[in-house]
Design a protein around this nucleic acid. Structure first.
Length: 722
DNA sequence: TCAATCCGTATC
DNA sequence: ATACGGATTGAC
């Protein structure tokens, strides 16, 4: 606001001045008095629970705890737990959330009054507040940072609307008004809903949807309906209609009187799941929550969920915090997709948020995908979750036939056009054959990988012999060195083939793929990837060249798929390269018709590579178990807890000095990183992970308290580094 | 002996 | 960021 008197010609026109003659001192005195009385209205405390415990939105790590304020009488009604408030804090006005109303404060000393209740809407549900605290602790971050991810910005106009949500064709749910009581944590006595309840009571096959094909599927659904907390790692069968399966799980949860929350990596997935939910649940039973809705719509839908008028949420990673009432199921699809890792501090992973949530709220959890992450395998290994998978014979029946084609000169196709793209004879033949019956998918690696070195001989990524970090050729240095501990890779020897020479991978797959068209004249070539993603393709023959994750949905399944330049993807600096590559292949191969309908996949590469074997055998869990074992040996998450600290050299070393690390902590580095920065890696056994995060948080706090210069960014179990 | 100032620390 | 308390300093 810019209505101060200075900007006006002649103070008399200001209504506040009334008809007072301009007599200088007198006027100033009156003004001062008015201001004082306005600033201090009735400060009588609220008649009951006169203290508000407030989570103040400050970026300072050492102030990450609740602060108590008195609740003035006039705010008694509006100051409810979970509402937004404005408070005086350290001389400035800050936003905050009321965590609780209490009778007494433990604080010795004067309490300041709340300045303002921003709105009586209890946007921060108690269980979400608890979850946010756990997430902050797990990731060595602050509650304020997590709350910024968990609660969307307020949109005042939306709050006033009588009808809180545009939820499809909104059928008559009386919960649309805001008088509904908050979060009964008990998953009990909710009436089952609409057609679905009836549906569910009928024959098992109908309500099970796709789940009848999985060994523990029906039992899992029953447990969900009963109100139990079944936890599963779900290996989706090739060709599975996964959105329908997830929608069915949600439907069963809703029928049992509880809410459901499903998180998927991207907007294409959201769109498919949205459609499936509309079909399975009926209109108006679910809501989509994503960041790209825009502030008003996002807040509108968030409120609808918080007010209990919608009990099923699907969305992208931020939806993991959605305040679904009486939560019965959390689901996560394709948890290996790195879009599920939040890029803002404290960098929580949606799967981990959901797992924490399932644990705290005792609800079901369903971690599913065609692929399986080492983290999911760990859940199985510890017994925290149970497998839901098809039998070996079901898998065999539905999977396409997968074969491996070598890249050696002898196997290259004789056809000159195919030879130009280094296409092996077998791949050429399979594609040619398949193109008579339908579209053929060609998956090419995305460009832009970090240059890690690979074994010249077998092309396996080179790893440090001391700490198993990625070996890189940084700058103009002669000797390649480890990206983590900095140790030069002298006398390096490949653990796979005993080779002693390294090579830098060459990038340039895209052009290769485009040349494919010339090998198959008269066949239309369509591309999908980057900015231009093709949603779907028809059943007619076509070559569909796509980057991972951008594969168009085929109307009747692809007749075949080719995976090109596999060694390039496998040579990434990333420790997850093998797992990630397999995930991308499986996601593509899952779109191919089953072997019984002639569906075929040809993967170009070295047959002995574990990822390729896992694709051939369609054994994602076995691969993840192996990956987990490898990580245990090498000392990587999830078998250990790992902290990566990046920033200015001085800041990073100060942080490390302050941190009272667990005895078991192993410090690697620091090594130079980025523009005159450093990176340091600390790892501890999993059981000391809490201690590690706490130590780093405390160290951050003391850095923040003493206003130390520079920045030091802490990431716990980051998805990718090196 | 008192007040002005500096520094460190807490921030309800 | 700012506000406060205790310590320190400097002038009387």
């Amino acid at each position: 606001m810019t209505t101060d008197d200075g900007g006006r010609p002649g103070g008399e026109s200001n209504p506040d001045d009334g008809d007072q003659p301009d007599d200088g001192g007198q006027l100033a005195l009156v003004r001062a008095r008015v201001r004082r009385t306005r600033a201090r209205p009735s400060q009588a405390p609220a008649p009951s629970l006169p203290i508000a415990r407030v989570a103040v939105d400050t970026p300072l790590a050492h102030l990450d705890r609740p602060f108590d304020y008195t609740v003035p009488e006039r705010m008694h009604e509006t100051c409810v737990p979970g509402c937004r408030v404005r408070v005086r804090f350290a001389g400035q006005d800050l936003d905050g959330y009321v965590l609780d109303r209490v009778a007494e404060s433990a604080h010795r000393g004067r309490l300041a009054p709340l300045r303002r209740v921003v709105s009586a809407e209890p946007v921060l549900a108690p269980e979400v507040a608890r979850l946010a605290r756990s997430v902050a602790d797990r990731y060595a971050g602050t509650l304020a940072d997590v709350l910024r991810l968990a609660v969307p910005p307020r949109h005042a106009r939306v709050e006033g609307e009588s009808r809180p949500a545009h939820v499809g064709d909104e059928t008559d749910r009386s919960g649309a008004d805001r008088s509904e009581p908050a979060a009964g944590d008990e998953p009990a006595d909710r009436p089952a809903q609409h057609e679905l309840a009836g549906d569910a009571d009928h024959g098992a096959t109908r309500c099970e949807g796709p789940w009848g094909s999985y060994e523990a599927g029906p039992a899992y659904l029953q447990a969900l309906r009963r109100g139990d907390a079944p936890r599963a790692v779900w290996s989706a069968l090739p060709g599975e209609d996964w959105p329908r399966a997830l929608a069915t799980a949600a439907a069963v949860t809703l029928a049992g009187g509880r809410g459901a929350l499903i998180v998927v990596p991207d907007h294409r997935d959201v769109a498919r799941l949205d459609a499936a939910c509309a079909e399975v649940l009926g209109a108006g039973q679910h809501v989509v929550l994503t960041a790209e809705l825009g502030p008003a719509e996002r807040y509108r839908r968030f409120l609808a969920v918080r007010r209990g008028s919608v009990r099923c949420v699907v969305g992208t990673r931020a939806a993991a915090f959605a305040p679904v009432e009486a939560l019965g199921l959390v689901g996560c699809w394709d948890d290996g997709d790195d879009l599920l890792a939040e890029p803002r501090a404290p960098y929580p992973h949606a799967r981990e948020v959901l797992l924490l949530r399932a644990h705290e709220q005792r609800c079901g959890a369903l971690i599913g995908g065609y692929a399986c992450t080492a983290e999911a395998a760990q859940l199985l290994a510890t017994g925290w979750a149970h497998p839901v998978a098809g039998s070996r014979s079901t898998v065999r029946a539905r999977a396409p036939r997968v074969s491996v084609a070598g890249e050696s000169a002898a196997e290259l196709a004789r056809d000159p056009a195919a030879r130009a793209v280094r296409l092996p004879h077998r791949a050429f033949e399979v594609a040619r054959q398949a193109l008579t019956t339908g579209p053929v998918l060609v998956q090419v690696p995305r460009s832009g990988y970090l240059p890690a070195l690979a074994c010249q001989n077998c092309r396996a990524a080179a790893r440090c012999t001391a700490c198993a970090g990625p070996v890189q050729q940084s700058g103009g240095r002669e000797v390649p060195a480890c990206g983590w501990c900095g140790r030069p890779a002298v006398a390096w020897r490949c653990p796979t083939c005993e080779g002693t020479r390294m090579r830098a991978p060459v990038i340039g797959a895209r052009r290769t793929a485009e040349e494919l068209g010339r090998a198959f004249p008269r066949v239309p070539v369509r591309t999908s990837g980057g900015q231009r993603v093709l949603e779907s393709v028809g059943a007619e023959p076509a070559l569909v060249v796509a980057t991972p994750g951008a594969e168009p949905l085929p109307a009747e399944g692809y007749a075949a798929a080719l995976m090109l330049d596999t060694w390039l993807a496998l040579a990434r600096a990333d420790l997850r390269a093998g797992e990630e590559t397999l995930r991308r292949w499986l996601n593509a191969a899952a779109l191919v018709r089953g072997a019984d309908q002639g569906g075929a996949v040809v993967v170009m590469g070295e047959p002995s590579v574990p990822s390729i074997q896992a694709l051939v055998r369609w054994s994602p869990v076995a691969h993840a178990e192996r990956e987990l074992a490898d990580r245990r040996i090498a000392g990587f998450p999830p078998t250990v807890r790992l902290a990566v600290i990046e920033g200015d050299g001085a800041a990073v070393s100060e942080l490390t000095e302050f941190a009272e690390l667990p005895e078991t902590a192993e410090v690697l580095g620091p090594v130079p990183h980025g523009e005159d920065g450093v990176r340091l890696v600390i790892r501890t056994p999993r059981r000391d992970g809490v201690q590690l995060a706490e130590a780093l948080k405390t160290a951050q706090a003391s850095r923040s308290a003493r206003k130390s210069a520079g920045t030091a960014r802490v990431q716990i179990d980051p998805i990718a580094f090196g």
